[in-house]
Simulated assay, not measured.
Amino acid sequence: MRTVLTAPRSTSSSGTPRFDRLDALRGAALVWMAVFHFCFDLAHRGLIEANFYRDAVWTGQRTVILTLFLCCAGAGQAIASAQGQSWGRFWRRWAQVAGCAVLVSAGSYLMFPRSYIYFGVLHGMAVMLIIARLSAPLGRWLWLLGLGAVLLPQYAAHPVFDQRALHWVGLVTHKPITEDYVPVLPWLGVMWWALAATQWLLARHPHWLASSHSPGVPQRGLTWLGQWSLTFYMLHQPLLIGALELGWWLTHRA
């Protein structure tokens, strides 16, 4: 597939061009996620009443936030492939994601031993990134593959996948008891669609992914945040929970 890259206004530390609108979108998703998680922490502490497991107001937000993250990940793989990213650099970044997934499991086990996260967003992303990297050359076929991935859980769910060792596939007949669950199916379909859409943009309208003028302070802030997404993801909950507990202690100490 013919790909044309127009150099954006900024470059990464490795010298490859970045697309600041994609970084800003990722940053906006991070801000939304942080607000969502802070509300969850308030509910968990009993400071607000909210059902994050059944109420469509909260489950719907989770779906949108997760969709944004996977779209940004798929778009990132399209850009990395177009820029000729080496497998060595891919595996270094992948190891960071996988390592953080292990830390999330450990940390969630301390807080929720009966419903800890064993295949959440980072676990799912670690698997899906490998699949996306290998399938990137398929081009327009990714649209059809994505449709199949999204529809398959609706028609191929089977009790054999209800055992924990196979939960990661996504063909379960009922949702496992865990604080975060992002199986490969159907979410790989979202990443495939984002990968295909970004390949199309890079070939025809690469300037849509980069600002043509100097962005304002809000966009620059979101862009910077989007460039440090994994760090923010790992630090935001410990900081939010710590601040909440400190505020609770100070209030009741008085």
Rank of each mutant, 00 (worst) to 15 (best):
R9P: 00
L30R: 03
L22G: 01
T11S: 10
G15R: 06
R26T: 08
A28Q: 00
T16M: 13
G15W: 05
R9Q: 04
R2N: 15
T11Q: 13
P8A: 05
T6I: 13
A29V: 03
R2H: 15
T3S: 11
S13M: 11
R9V: 00
A29T: 03
D20T: 12
T11M: 08
R2A: 14
T16C: 05
R9F: 02
A7F: 03
L5W: 10
A7D: 14
L25G: 05
S10K: 13
S10C: 11
S12L: 15
R9T: 04
A24Q: 01
A24P: 05
G27L: 08
S13E: 11
T11E: 04
G15D: 00
S12E: 14
V4H: 12
S14Q: 12
T3R: 10
S14E: 09
D23K: 02
P8K: 04
R9A: 11
A29H: 07
P8M: 00
R9I: 03
L22R: 00
T6P: 01
L22N: 00
V31P: 05
R2D: 15
R21S: 01
R9C: 03
V4F: 09
V31K: 09
T16A: 14
L30Y: 00
G15K: 00
S13Y: 11
D23C: 00
L25K: 00
P8S: 08
A29Q: 05
G27T: 10
R18T: 14
L5M: 13
S14W: 11
L22S: 10
D23I: 08
R21F: 08
L30M: 12
R26C: 01
A7E: 14
A28P: 07
R21M: 09
G15H: 06
